[in-house]
Design a protein around this nucleic acid. Structure first.
Lengths: 142, 142
DNA sequence: CTAGATGCAAATTCTTTGCGGTCAA
DNA sequence: TTGACCGCAAAGAATTTGCATCTAG
């Protein structure tokens, strides 16, 4: 357990929500300015293998990292990509139900809620209010 | 609706499971050998916008495409990445339940089963059988 | 001391974009 | 005819890898 890995783990634990690799990088860089992105990726992988963190493969493109390795569900903001926990125990009965319905060997399941996070919801309402007040520019056609 | 788009749509519909962009490319290329990857991506996007197909953001890294645009659940093979349908109606009550539990504006939800597809399961069993028969090489330590 | 970890840069993988030529409506 | 579309090549974004150096145990 090197200095870098310790700091990475601490920053993931401290993070509000579940950071992506570059969010981890930005946070860690404040304490270890010379750390490189490849170290971030390599150490994230190592921490996963040691069971210290888990990867959240929510949505596509970017991976998120979570210091809580217990199974739990997440909500994902469709606008900013933020990922937060859902305060419920996973429904394990779902897996048993699906075992009878498909020919896969079931290992686990993932459930994610798609929506707008409070911040983005606020911004969206703000925009709608502005749109209702201002003259309608979009209707000008020529 | 161009020739390319028609063929792309047909090949997605014909595909056993839900192809990734490069799987679509390989399938389409047999009928339109000069088609390019950028056309595949652009046409997949157009078909999505027209509601002819949907993107499945299962797991990470690669997008999968699905000619069935109704909401439904999927199973994903952890080994080969294959994605197949689960024969159940989505549990809409989950969204209502989660509305009371988080401060997101809930738009939808995704549920995916993680496991081994029949093919990979077969291969894994094959390997295990071999391992049980052969001398244990991994135990040689020096 | 030494195996393994680090930092840097270059390579990979998946996806998107710019551009000149082409095709369907 | 002409605006949308195509193929090609090059750019981007996220992640991985090769390699020389360094460091924790």
């Amino acid at each position: 357990m090197t200095r870098q890995r310790r700091v990475i783990l601490e920053e993931i634990r401290r993070f509000d929500g579940h950071p992506t690799a570059d969010e981890v990088y930005e946070a860690v860089r404040k304490r270890l300015p010379r750390i490189s992105m490849s170290t971030i990726y390599r150490d994230l992988e190592a921490l996963c293998e040691w069971g210290k963190i888990q990867v959240l493969e929510v949505g596509c493109s970017k991976k998120h990292f979570d210091a809580d390795t217990n199974n739990h569900y997440h909500a994902r903001c469709i606008r900013c990509g933020r990922v937060t926990n859902l305060p419920v125990q996973p429904f394990t009965y779902l897996e048993q139900a699906f075992r009878d319905l498909c020919d896969y060997k079931v290992i686990g399941h993932r459930l994610e809620l798609i929506g707008l996070c409070p911040d983005c919801l606020k911004q969206q309402k703000e925009k709608q209010r502005q749109a209702a007040t201002e003259p309608v520019e979009a209707d000008k056609k020529g």
